[in-house]
Design a protein around this nucleic acid. Sequence first.
DNA 1: TTTCATGTAACTTAGTTAGTTACGAATTGC
DNA 2: GCAATTCGTAACTAACTAAGTTACATGAAA
Lengths: 149, 149
Amino acid sequence: MKRNSRLSSTLHILVHMADAPDRALTSEQLAGFIHTNPVVVRRTIAGLREAGIVTSSRGHGGGWQLGRAPDEISLAEISAALGETLLPFSTEPESPGCLVEQAVIAVLDDFRLEAERLLAERLSHITLADLTADFRRRYDLIGVSSHAV
Amino acid sequence: MKRNSRLSSTLHILVHMADAPDRALTSEQLAGFIHTNPVVVRRTIAGLREAGIVTSSRGHGGGWQLGRAPDEISLAEISAALGETLLPFSTEPESPGCLVEQAVIAVLDDFRLEAERLLAERLSHITLADLTADFRRRYDLIGVSSHAV
DNA sequence: TTTCATGTAACTTAGTTAGTTACGAATTGC
DNA sequence: GCAATTCGTAACTAACTAAGTTACATGAAA
């Protein structure tokens, strides 16, 4: 898994899970989809389990499944469950008492608060179902073109 | 300088420069404001010079000054000149040919394009002058309270 | 009770970025 | 011209972060 690709990697995994709703997929299988290690997968999506987005079971036939219907799972939730920050910059004071720094941080924090609210709002309108639909569309297109050729 | 604080550190520096429009500040002085090294400062704001946001001069009495009026310098420009990305996640393909990944990337890139446009638009409305005004306001407040006590 | 799978801690490796050193180039003042 | 000053930049080091890996305990099913 590459850096900063936790969100897209996780979505990749979740779409595969949505595409196989009748059976549990193992960390090993999930890891295969994104070319990484089973432990990395378990670690990455552990937060999703706590958020109820996925469920996991141990032992024979165990593995991972979606915790609810794909159209009830938004990207906002997934991103939050991963502990991802939507904005990259930090604004922690480094010169306590400096009024210039305080002004900078105040303005920047205002912006960030508003921006995060806005982005989360948008992400809450995109669901896993939208992704699987997009995948399905691409899949059918390939099928059609295969027939054509 | 801490990680991911390049934007706020740079703004801190720029407000100090705006507050001393009549003279050039050396990298050494600027570094002092954010508790870092002069070379780090030069490296960090080199992009701002190319963008015309600041100018630099060498030799005796040399240093850094704003390239134009503070109300003509927006945070959007500064952020761009620093080479900062507004959104943290990457969407580079890791499994070429995988339709699931293609769907994920397509949706995520759509979102990012729109989000970046939106954030840049908002940042373009905040100028360095806004920051200096906020600083000035805080400064005056302290002054008043000092008199009161 | 054997096998399979997750849960998690601990460690290693790779990559990024700040920090540092060093020195050349340009500019000013004497 | 020459010394002092300051930026520009390359090269290196150190610190930090996150992925990758190993190991093993826990739990569930055949």
